[in-house]
């Protein structure tokens, strides 16, 4: 890569790395995993920088890679589950590796968000954290607007259902 292109890449990353790691955190629920996921996506962006930069869609491309990569991670973890309860392990890992921090306005809601399937969680993060439109979300997820609608609808329905199961 040319030195000027590499500098452009570095400028982009330094400007956006906090936002991307936060998005990664919403996908993974784990600070370290979020950083790993972000680095993986940025490394791939670096590989294709010239092409992606010309298209002017760097950030959407990175988020798309993050979603796809996280979905693959999740599937691999699920396949290995066998005798291990994935959700319990995942939540325990998160507890162990994230800062305690202040209590969320609704920590139980956050816990249930973490248990959504990865594509639903990605749709929720893009729509309600990144404030992307349905069309923009569809572009990042690589699916139709109708699929975005159904993913977010199912996610909200699941959250409502699970929270309703918890005794007040």
């Amino acid at each position: 890569m040319r030195s000027d292109a590499e500098e452009e890449f570095a400028e982009f990353v330094r400007a956006r790395q906090h936002a991307l790691v936060r998005f990664g955190y919403l996908l993974t629920g784990d600070r370290m995993a979020a950083e790993d996921l972000t680095q993986t996506a940025l490394a791939r962006l670096y590989l294709k920088w010239d092409t992606i930069r010309q298209a002017g869609a760097m950030e959407a491309w990175v988020r798309r890679v993050m979603v796809n990569e996280h979905t693959s991670w999740w599937r691999r973890a699920w396949r290995r589950r066998e005798t291990v309860d994935f959700d319990a392990t995942h939540l325990a890992d998160r507890t162990a590796s994230t800062d305690p921090g202040p209590v969320s306005p609704d920590d139980s809601l956050w816990q249930h968000v973490l248990r959504l399937p990865p594509r639903q969680r990605a749709a929720v993060a893009l729509r309600y954290y990144e404030d992307l439109s349905e069309a923009q979300t569809a572009e990042v997820l690589g699916c139709s607007i109708g699929t975005v609608k159904s993913q977010t609808h199912r996610a909200l329905a699941t959250l409502r259902s699970r929270l309703a199961e918890v005794p007040a």
Partner: peptide, 12 residues
Amino acid sequence: LRRTLHHDAERI
């Protein structure tokens, strides 16, 4: 949902 996501993510 929006409030929860912002609260959790922006600690990172």
